[in-house]
Simulated scan of single mutants.
Amino acid sequence: MPSSRPTPEAHAGDERTTELIRWAAFSCVLVPVVLLWYGTSLAGTAGTAVGLAAVTAVCRLLLRRSERCAARLLDDAPPPGVPHRGRRQHAGTGSHRGGRHSGGGSPVG
């Protein structure tokens, strides 16, 4: 049974994501302040702030979803040293189907 503890690589990914989201939130505050400083209207600044917050929220959602999918793929991966077989590759007898076969069950006419 695989352990539910995050690997060091997964932990580093979480830290990078958190840091990225912090910078995005910081810019969501900084950009409207700069716009106000340079004389942009309050309505324009508010619209920009709402737009930046929406984009940041969607990016955060997509980033977290991507991390979950990557973690799921890593959990499903075969252990190192085990060869990966494609979807249609089967081992053992009877794996080759549909070709010409000589002898055996062919009717004699």
Results as ranks from 00 to 15, higher is better:
Met1Thr: 08
Met1Cys: 05
Met1Ile: 03
Ser3Gly: 10
Ser3Arg: 03
Arg5Ile: 07
Glu9Asn: 06
His11Cys: 08
Asp14Gly: 09
Glu15Lys: 05
Glu15Thr: 09
Glu19Lys: 08
Ile21Trp: 10
Trp23Thr: 13
Trp23Leu: 10
Trp23Pro: 02
Ala24Trp: 06
Ala24Lys: 09
Ala25Arg: 14
Cys28Gln: 01
Cys28Tyr: 01
Val31Ile: 15
Pro32Val: 01
Leu35Glu: 07
Gly39Phe: 00
Thr40Glu: 09
Thr45Arg: 03
Gly47Leu: 10
Gly47His: 05
Val50Thr: 11
Val50Cys: 12
Ala54Leu: 11
Ala54Ile: 03
Val55Pro: 03
Thr56Val: 04
Ala57His: 03
Leu62Arg: 15
Leu62Pro: 00
Arg64Asn: 05
Arg65Asp: 14
Arg65Gly: 13
Ser66Pro: 04
Glu67Gly: 05
Glu67Asn: 13
Glu67Pro: 04
Arg68Met: 11
Arg68Tyr: 12
Arg68Ser: 06
Arg68Val: 06
Cys69Ser: 14
Ala71Leu: 10
Leu74Ser: 06
Leu74Gln: 05
Ala77Asp: 03
Pro78Ser: 01
Pro80Arg: 12
Gly81Leu: 07
Val82Asp: 03
Arg85Pro: 02
Gly86Ile: 03
Arg88Asp: 09
Arg88Leu: 15
His90Thr: 09
Gly92Gln: 04
Gly92Tyr: 06
Thr93Lys: 09
Gly94Tyr: 01
Gly94Leu: 08
Ser95Trp: 07
Arg97Gly: 10
Arg97Trp: 02
Gly98Phe: 00
Arg100Leu: 04
Arg100Gly: 08
Arg100Met: 09
Arg100Thr: 09
Ser102Thr: 12
Ser102Leu: 14
Gly103Ala: 10
Gly103Phe: 09
Gly105Glu: 11
Val108His: 12
Val108Ser: 07
